[in-house]
Amino acid sequence: MSGRAPISGVVTTFNNAATLDACLDSLAFCDERIVLDSGSTDATRQIAERHGARIAEHPFEGYGPQKQRAIDMARHDWILLLDADEHLTEAAREIIERELRDPRADGYRLPRQEWLFWKWAHLGTRANWQLRLFRKSRGRMNEVPVHAAPVVDGVRRDLRAPFRHYGEPRLADRVDKVNRYSSGLVVHKHRRGVRGLGARILFQPTLAFLKLYIGKRYFLDGWAGYLAARTQAFYTFLKYAKVLETQRSKDQA
């Protein structure tokens, strides 16, 4: 779109052939598309090549460092950061282009709509807002080991430019991810210390369930919403229970 700031669409990948096509297609309006791969063995690289993306490969060194490396490759200041299992809606592309004609902020949170096992979330379900559009000169990835996210030194705004996240299609995949992610957070949380660990183990899982099922209206999504809220509660339980396990194991050593 004439008159708007140039945009670099940035994606990190590893064996994402099932979803990458939709992701890169939704970024076709960007002035460049960057794909940083960490050794895919499926058709990921071929899909990226077909879309004309600028491709590089680097061994995976963590979510934050990998995304930061991809961001550093960008030629333009404005970064649109997506995961390979996410894609922008048509409405989002139009809103982003309009906003970047005269940007009012240094970073923007966008609403993410979730795939819940076998269906897209109900329109009445509250979206998860994520900071995904930002100035490279004012933003960097944080150092959280699993849920790494951009942080911006400057003005931040919410922009109603929705994007979609194609999450785990099977409950088994979701449970596997919950187990891996909770393990990935143990060292980080143990180093920082967790106050009231026992209370968190007892009560935080229930609060996490209620936050999604009632607060974000996952009850509108039937059994898919219930399962999503329950697995989130299980994740909350595991990440604190594993910290306790680590502490007790070190005490016995």
Rank of each mutant, 00 (worst) to 15 (best):
I47W: 12
G215C: 04
L227R: 09
N142E: 11
P150A: 01
F60P: 02
K216C: 14
A91C: 00
R109E: 08
A74E: 01
P111I: 03
L24Y: 00
G193C: 12
H122E: 10
A199M: 14
G215E: 04
M1S: 14
R217D: 10
Q113N: 04
F237N: 00
A5I: 06
N179S: 11
P145I: 08
P205F: 11
W223Y: 06
R69F: 10
A28Q: 09
D77V: 04
D221T: 05
L88A: 05
K239F: 13
T19Y: 07
D21Y: 06
P111L: 02
P150T: 00
K239E: 15
F14T: 00
P145M: 08
S183K: 13
V35G: 02
I95C: 04
R101W: 10
A18G: 06
E32N: 03
Y240V: 03
H190Q: 11
C23S: 06
D37K: 12
K242Q: 14
R4E: 05
P162L: 00
A172Q: 05
S182A: 07
T125W: 05
N15M: 15
G62R: 08
A5V: 09
F209N: 03
R98P: 06
S183Q: 09
D251K: 12
F134A: 08
K250L: 15
A18R: 13
H58L: 13
A121G: 05
D42N: 05
I201K: 04
H58R: 14
K177Y: 00
A149M: 13
A74C: 08
E94A: 12
L238F: 11
R191V: 14
M141Q: 12
Q130P: 00
A233W: 11
R138T: 03
H122I: 05
F60T: 07
P169K: 00
I7K: 04
A84M: 10
T246M: 15
P59Y: 00
Q252I: 15
F134V: 09
G193L: 15
G139Q: 08
R200M: 07
A28G: 05
G39M: 09
A28D: 08
K119A: 13
